[in-house]
Write a protein that binds this DNA or RNA. Structure first.
Length: 577
RNA sequence: GCGGCGGUAGUCUAGCCUGGUUUAGGACGCCGGCCUCCCAAGCCGGAGAUCCCGGGUUCGAAUCCCGGCCGCCGCACCA
């Protein structure tokens, strides 16, 4: 059996378990299912909530001085995605071989075969090039079809009139860019500012496979981190250290092994082009580690320029090794520069620049236009007001140009005025800052993928039984309560303990059916970290046993200490579940 | 989207080639009862199947044929 078969077998078992115990399964199964859609079951929902909350802990709560979370709609009007570039760039030009049926990205085909950069070309242009250069199928040499477009956006209509086109968002980011000014103001106008969002997105993938790994609709967890690239350093004391990464340059040379670099050095040397990008990669590293992924099973891969999204100046994918699929992308880290805000400023006309104060106010000499209104009034009469308006909006350099003549009268923007009435004077001005368009570093995660990864890493078999070693912090059910036997006196105490633990806001499972061994096994299979058992000794001394899922060791505690002990074992504070 | 393989209770599967012998069999799981003093013990009973969907061939289709859907693998695609 090859390694792949063993891994595949393991994946099959996980999928099987997920369906059987209620983590996830294909959606709309009774109608045959639809590729790219998955339901989360009862345990899946609980696990996902914990994964999402852990993400929130790392990316929002640990950074509440820097990051604020918002929520925006999943439907966006066309103009928003036009501004973001998704209408144009999310549409792939596809070309097909009429002989063998293979499909290619038309732009990639052209670039690879004749080295012509055709990014952003329309369908007609691409078609023209294909015909002029007589391109053939690179596989079989067959004739190629016309170029068609393939849009990965889900389209819908807003309101009763079909002319109002809307799209399901392919990322949460655009809602955050659109709302940037509002959030910036409500967060008291300070940079850096991260805006976080957890929400659903949809991408109409051409052929989704890989189960939960590639979905057409999923939950995205993103931070758009707005900052001044020349601003202060990230708080390296919170997150920093080593990153395993595979730079594009090494990939180009066919290298597959990541190198280990110190993030601060990598930023200084320009390997990571933006310091906040590097910072959030460190946060992501530790977050993923908490899901049960060893550092050696995770690294970053820099995307090649042609692999990057249209908005990105540099992208790293965080990869985690999983059964069956090998290295899977769990997060993308893109340096989006000021691309998005700039585009939204252009299209919406809204000024989203941010005032950047200088450390010290600067004294600068500026040139100003000074006019003699008395003279001008006599020359222009009633058009004086409109002339002054034009002048106000005019660049000093242009006025200078107009003055660079020896004529008596000069012409400025169609107004003929006496030369002597317009002067340029130099003045000393104090400037306390300037306006900049913030740059953005974006870490972005898919939640459902992470659920799968947690199960993949947690799955283990012990003597023919399954133990899900889910990290206790994210385990969907925290404790199980059993009577040793189904005797009324034991059942009564066990049920009391169950209610008591529920009142702590713990997720708890009560089970009295079958033998005690079977119940431990059932609990292990869904990853319950601790099992409390009421036995006959309980009746005489008010103690119960707590059994550890991973070590199978039991400790005996008195019922009155049980709450405290369990919370301690689970690393939880009272009320902070 | 192309090619190959597959789709039978919650899960895994037998049966399919060679149509009727099957009220579609089994294992595990689930539910109820009995039993059981700590790791899937045992006994009894029970529920649970659009045999993926649609059409065709046939006296008769889980079984043969065609189309579709879904899944896996390879190719292509995957900001």
């Amino acid at each position: 059996m090859s390694v792949k078969d063993i891994l595949g077998d393991r994946y099959d078992k996980i999928v099987d378990l997920a369906k059987r115990r209620g983590f996830f399964w294909p959606s709309y199964e009774i109608y045959g299912g639809v590729a790219g859609f998955y339901d989360l079951g009862p345990l899946g929902v609980m696990l996902k909530i914990n994964v999402v909350n852990l993400w929130r802990e790392y990316f929002v709560l640990k950074h509440q001085d820097l990051v604020a979370e918002i929520e925006t709609p999943i439907i966006a009007p066309e103009v928003v995605l036009r501004a973001s570039g998704h209408i144009n760039h999310f549409t792939d030009p596809i070309i097909e071989c009429l002989n063998c049926g293979r499909k290619y990205r038309a732009d990639h085909l052209i670039e690879e075969n004749i080295g012509l950069k055709v990014e952003g070309y329309g369908v007609e242009d691409l078609n023209k090039i294909v015909r002029e250069k007589e391109l053939k199928c690179p596989q079989c040499g067959g004739k190629l079809s016309d170029v068609r477009t393939f849009n990965l956006l889900f389209k819908t209509t807003i309101g009763p009139y079909s002319s109002d086109v809307g799209y399901l968002r392919p990322e949460a980011a655009q809602g955050m860019f659109s709302a940037f000014k509002r959030v910036f103001i409500s967060m008291r106008e300070r940079l850096p500012l991260g805006i976080a969002q957890i929400g659903r997105v949809a991408r109409n993938e051409i052929s989704p496979r890989q189960g939960m790994v590639r979905l057409r609709e999923f939950t995205i967890m993103e931070v758009e981190f707005f900052h001044d690239p020349e601003g202060d350093d990230p708080p390296w004391d919170r997150f920093s250290g080593k990153l395993r990464l595979l730079p594009a340059e090494l990939r180009q040379r066919g290298e597959e092994k990541p190198i280990e670099v110190d993030v601060v050095e990598a930023v200084r040397e320009g390997l990571i082009k933006n310091k906040w990008l590097g910072y959030w990669m460190c946060v992501a590293r530790d977050f993923i580690r908490e899901l049960g992924v060893e550092y050696s099973d995770m690294h970053y891969e820099e995307k090649m320029p042609y692999e990057r999204a249209h908005y990105s100046a540099q992208t790293f994918d965080q990869l985690v090794r999983v059964s069956r699929w090998g290295w899977v992308e769990v997060s993308g880290h893109a340096y989006r520069t000021d691309y998005d805000l700039r585009r939204h400023m252009e299209i919406s006309g809204e000024d989203m620049k941010v005032f950047k104060p200088f450390k010290e106010p600067r004294v600068v000499e500026v040139e100003k236009v000074v006019v003699d209104k008395a003279v001008l009034g006599r020359a222009l009469g009633s058009s004086l007001a409109s002339f002054l308006e034009v002048l106000r909006n005019m660049d000093v350099e242009e006025v200078k140009k107009a003055l660079a003549t020896s004529e008596e009268n000069i012409v400025i923007s169609g107004f003929r005025v006496p030369r002597a009435a317009v002067k340029i004077v130099k003045e000393v001005e104090k400037l306390s800052g300037t306006k900049i368009i913030p740059h953005v570093a974006e870490p972005s995660f898919g939640a459902e993928r992470l659920v799968l990864i947690v199960l993949d890493k947690a799955y283990s078999e012990e003597e023919n039984r399954v133990v899900l070693k889910i990290p206790k912090k994210i385990a969907p059910v925290k404790a199980a309560v059993f009577p040793l036997l189904e005797r009324e006196e034991l059942v009564r105490v066990a049920k009391e303990i169950y209610s008591d633990l529920v009142s702590l806001r713990l997720t708890v499972l009560y089970d009295e059916s079958g033998s005690i061994g079977r119940r431990y096994a059932r609990a292990d299979e869904i990853g319950i970290p601790y099992a409390v058992t009421v036995d006959f000794q309980t009746l005489s001394d008010d103690t119960v046993t707590i059994r550890d899922r991973d070590t199978k060791q039991q400790i005996r505690v008195s019922i009155k200490d049980l709450r405290k002990k369990l919370l301690e074992l689970l690393d939880l504070e009272l009320g902070a579940v």
